[in-house]
């Protein structure tokens, strides 16, 4: 089945109030927001944010997330140390939650984003629906990466026993947070419609080449 998209119809959708406008409109007359047919520079911005997120993930995983200072000494641990600690201490549930939120989710999000961007670049139109499903998943789970940040914040706030034990935030927390924020922005700036536009492009290309052929 051949779907008619807004591009073919020469229309553009206001993403805020979902009013369909002709292309000539730049500002939605209903809700007053700017109207674009596609999110401007979606691909470039998504790329840059994704790359930034990847960069931030490096210190986020290498540096200590929080530092426990106690009379028994100082113990700084990375995210993975925390996961391993819980797995070893019979708290597998918590271990898995932290692993999922702090390690799996960010990596999964970035992998998916890169996959989607590649799909667009390679015009893989047949992957569009699958890509959209993945996009919906990463959009939904995105904010859960913040879990560990909140946990660190709470622990720091609660464990303040002067000399006996205190917990302070480690440098990885900020990197990790930036990585999460970057991925969230990247997801926001990614326009899933571009996945389906590949089909249109292909079709256009085909038509053009057909036309070219006829010309020839």
């Amino acid at each position: 089945m051949q779907w008619i998209t807004d591009i073919e119809a020469g229309k553009q959708l206001c993403l805020h109030c979902r009013k369909l406008h002709p292309l000539s409109v730049h500002r939605c007359d209903r809700c007053g927001s700017e109207v674009h047919q596609r999110i401007p520079h979606s691909i470039a911005i998504t790329w840059s944010l994704a790359i930034a997120a990847i960069i931030f993930l490096i210190p986020a995983n290498l540096l200590p997330m929080m530092v426990v200072k106690s009379i028994a000494g100082e113990d700084a641990g990375t995210i993975m140390d925390g996961v391993i600690y819980f797995l070893e201490h019979g708290e597998a549930g918590i271990g898995i939650v932290i692993f999922a939120a702090s390690i799996f989710v960010p990596f999964f999000k970035l992998t998916v984003l890169l996959y989607l961007l590649l799909n667009i670049h390679l015009n893989r139109s047949h992957r569009a629906k699958f890509g959209l499903k993945l996009y919906r998943i990463i959009h939904f789970i995105g904010k859960w990466s913040m879990l560990d940040i909140f946990v660190v914040a709470l622990m720091v706030g609660l464990v303040q026993f002067k000399n006996l034990a205190t917990i302070v935030t480690g440098p990885a927390a900020i990197a990790f947070m930036l990585a999460v924020v970057m991925t969230m922005f990247a997801t926001e700036h990614f326009d899933p419609r571009l996945l389906f536009d590949t089909e249109l492009k292909k079709r256009k290309h085909k038509n053009e080449s057909n036309e070219g052929n006829t010309h020839v």
């Binding site: 998209t5 807004d6 959708l13 979902r18 419609r193 389906f196 536009d197």
Partner: peptide, 12 residues
């Protein structure tokens, strides 16, 4: 009413 899908751009 004519609108478009936010996620795939199809006119519905």
């Amino acid at each position: 009413k004519e609108t478009a899908c936010k996620e795939c751009g199809v006119i519905v």
